[in-house]
Design a protein around this nucleic acid. Structure first.
Lengths: 236, 236
DNA sequence: CGTGCCGTTGACGATATTCAAGTGCAGTGG
DNA sequence: CCACTGCACTTGAATATCGTCAACGGCACG
C-alpha cells in the first residue's frame, strides 16, 4: 500500500506541526537515498552504528546469540527514524536487515545536529526516540507475559496501527510481509508453534493472513484477544 | 555497598570526561533530591512522564496488563539517568517504583535543555539513552531466546557489571535487593519457577544469593552459562 | 527438473505453570 | 514475652504450553 504523502514527513508530523523550512530540511536528506534488497543487511554486527530513516519497506533489527539462536528486537516501518544516537557506537552487537526491498536514508551526526537546531524538528525527533523505547518496552511485556497467540495478536495490532498512522493501512487491511519464521523471531517462539497459533487466530476469525496481506475483520476483538492497549503508541 | 564518588558523576563519565563546569551543572541538580521509601511509586501510571537520575537505591519500571499480569521492563541503578524525553508524555502507561529506599533527582525539561547545551554533557546524556535502549534490547533477547536459568544468570551478570561500573561491586560481591517475585517479573517467569531455577544455579556453584547479597564465585562461568556478552553495556 | 524456502502436520518430550500446602522470619500488638 | 499476621521462599504433584524431530506438500527460481 502506498503512503499518500512522504512517510517520514507524515511520521514526524504526528505530534508536531512542522514549518516549511523544517520540511525542507527533511526533504533535503532524501537526495541521498539508499536502496536495499530484501534480505540484505544495512548494518552488520561489528560495524559502526548509524542513524536511519525508512522511506520505503520494512527493516528488522536482529540480535544473534553465541549458539546461533536469533531474535528480532525491533521492526522499523515506513516513516520511522531510528537509532538517533547510534553513531557513538564503534561496533554494534546487532544487525539491521531489510525485510522487503527498501529505501532508507542514512543521517550523519552532523546532519542530525543541524536538524536538532530547529526546535520543532528537535521535538519531533524526541517523539521518535520515545516511540521506539515505548515499543520495545511493550515488546518486553509481550514476551514476558503473553501466551503465543496473544503475542502474535498483539504484534499484528501494533503493525496495523503503526502503518495506519502514516496512511498505509485502512479498512482493516495492511501489508504484512513477515514470514512465519520472522514472526517467530519477533515473538520468541518456534516456527512450528507460530504456524499453529496463527491457525488458531484464523479459526477464530480474528485475522485473515495470506500472501503478504493482513486483514483484521474486527480490530477491537483482536485487541481484546491480544490484551492490546494502544496508548503506548501515543497516537492521537 | 557505597559508591566511592557520586554515582551519577561516575556514570556519566564512563564515556566522556567532564569539565569542572559540567560537573558543577550536575552537582547543582542534587540540591533538590527526593527520597522514596522502598515499595512506593515515583510515578504512577496515568501521570505525566518525568526525567530522573538515581542517586541512591534501585528503581523499577513496571507495566500492568488489563488482567493483572505485571512485568518489570527496566531496572535503574545508582548513577542511571533515564527517561530523558519523558516530559513529552501526558499520561504514562507504566509506573516507577522504588525497589529499595532510594534517593532520586527529578530533572525538568528546561534543566535538561541547559545541560544539553554543554557539548560533553550532551554526549554523556546520549550515552545514557543508548545504554537504556541497548539494555532493553538485550532483555528482549533474554525473554525471547533464553531458558529460565539462563535468563536469571544473564540478569545477574548484567546487574553485577552495571554496579561494578560505578564502583558498587567488587571481588564478585554486590547488592541484590530484588526478591524472587521481582526476578520473576523481570524474567517473565513465575515465582515458583524462579525459586527452582535459582536452586539450580546455586547447586552448580554459579552463584551465592542470600539476604540481599549476591556473590559470583566465577564470573566467566556464569557468563558462559547465561550466554552473556558484555559488549552491549559498552563498558570500557 | 531439481533445489530451497515457506508453511503444515503428527508424535513425543522438555520446560514452565498451576495449585496447594508448609516453613521460617520479621514486625505488630496484646 | 508470646500469639498473630504477612511476606518471602520452598516443595510436590498434576497439568498446560511450547519445543523438537521428522516428514510432506506447494511454490518460486534457476
Amino acid at each position: 500500500m502506498k503512503c499518500p504523502q512522504h512517510p517520514v514527513l507524515a511520521h514526524l508530523q504526528r505530534h508536531v506541526r512542522l514549518s516549511a523550512s523544517d520540511r525542507n530540511a527533511i526533504e533535503a536528506l532524501f537526495q541521498s537515498c539508499r536502496k536495499v534488497k530484501s534480505g540484505r543487511e544495512l548494518i552488520r554486527s561489528g560495524a559502526a552504528g548509524k542513524t536511519f530513516a525508512v522511506v520505503e519497506g520494512w527493516i528488522a533489527r536482529e540480535s544473534l546469540l553465541l549458539d546461533g539462536r536469533q531474535q528480532i528486537t525491533a521492526l522499523f516501518l515506513p516513516g520511522d527514524v531510528f537509532d538517533l544516537n547510534a553513531e557513538l557506537i564503534a561496533d554494534c552487537d546487532y544487525s539491521l536487515r531489510a525485510v522487503t526491498d527498501s529505501t532508507v536514508v542514512e543521517i550523519s551526526r552532523s546532519q542530525l545536529r543541524r536538524l536538532k537546531d530547529q526546535p520543532r524538528l528537535d521535538e519531533a525527533l524526541c517523539w521518535e526516540e520515545l516511540e521506539q523505547l515505548a515499543i520495545s518496552t511493550e515488546w518486553l511485556v509481550n514476551l514476558g507475559q503473553r501466551s503465543a497467540s496473544e503475542r502474535i495478536a498483539h504484534l499484528l495490532c501494533e503493525i496495523y496501527l503503526r502503518l495506519r498512522s502514516v496512511g498505509m493501512a485502512r479498512d482493516g487491511w495492511c501489508d504484512m510481509p513477515l514470514t512465519q519464521s520472522m514472526i517467530a523471531e519477533v515473538t520468541g517462539l518456534t516456527r512450528v508453534h507460530v504456524s499453529r497459533s496463527l491457525q488458531r487466530l484464523r479459526s477464530e476469525e480474528l485475522i485473515h493472513l495470506e500472501r503478504g496481506r493482513l486483514r483484521i475483520p474486527d480490530l477491537v476483538r483482536l485487541e481484546e484477544f491480544g490484551l492490546f492497549e494502544a496508548n503506548y503508541l501515543h497516537l492521537t
